[in-house]
């Protein structure tokens, strides 16, 4: 398997482990882009999804926004943004956020809607204010699905943040783009492996967050 040979060669090469083009630097850059994009997408998607889900309105608008955002080609959007806004982190964030908002928004909306209506009815009947119903009854029940939406957004971002390298930024994409131009497949495969590992780590992190944040009452009954 020459892919395995490439992987071995890439990771055993000492020069890949330090300096501005070293794995630690590129990994940090990649994490930085990814976390920033995820945070922006979450700040947009979570509140809108929670509120529309709570009131059960705007489902069609959300489906429309999601379809529209999914239709926008990420790579094309990146090139366009760079041409319009110039080089920098901003033009990279826009396509990543457009990519990540639909899964967060749609899953959050559907997660809140799919919460068992009877505890919500009971809470309202007990005189709980709407904000508390949303945050203390619906959110805990919807949390596993919401985390799932965030997780799929995070994995897509981690994978796609490689495009930052195309517009001169760093991140793991650097290895892939440089490898392509230098016809250095070792770098490409090494970069791809790093992204895959990062994706697995992301899965692990979300699993751990779910263990801590989701009430055992929800986890076992759901």
């Amino acid at each position: 398997m020459n892919v395995l040979t490439f992987i071995h060669a890439f990771f055993s090469d000492g020069s890949h482990w330090h300096g501005y083009d070293g794995i630690p630097t590129r990994l940090t850059e990649h994490l930085h882009y990814s976390l920033q994009a995820l945070a922006i997408a979450a700040v947009i998607g979570l509140p809108i999804g929670l509120i529309t889900g709570h009131y059960g309105r705007g489902g069609n608008a959300i489906a429309l926004v999601a379809t529209g955002s999914r239709a926008l080609p990420t790579f094309g959007l990146l090139v366009l943004m760079v041409m319009w806004l110039g080089f920098g982190l901003g033009p990279v964030m826009i396509p990543l956020v457009v990519l990540a908002v639909p899964p967060i928004l749609v899953t959050t909306y559907e997660a809140v809607r799919s919460v068992d209506p009877s505890p919500v009815d009971a809470a309202r009947g007990m005189g709980m204010p709407e904000s508390r119903i949303l945050l203390q009854v619906e959110l805990p029940g919807a949390l596993p699905l919401i985390l799932g939406g965030l997780r799929s957004a995070a994995i897509q971002i981690v994978s796609t943040a490689t495009i930052a390298a195309y517009v001169g930024l760093g991140g793991i994409g650097r290895y892939i783009i440089d490898g392509l131009y230098q016809r250095n497949y070792e770098k490409v495969v090494g970069g791809a492996t790093l992204v895959a590992v990062l994706a697995l780590v992301t899965l692990g992190v979300f699993w751990a967050v779910a263990r801590v944040a989701v009430s055992p009452g929800v986890r076992r009954s759901g």
Partner: peptide
């Protein structure tokens, strides 16, 4: 799914 498409293409 996590493997970037570009890396996939290049390989």
């Amino acid at each position: 799914y996590a493997i970037p498409s570009l890396a996939f293409f290049v390989v």
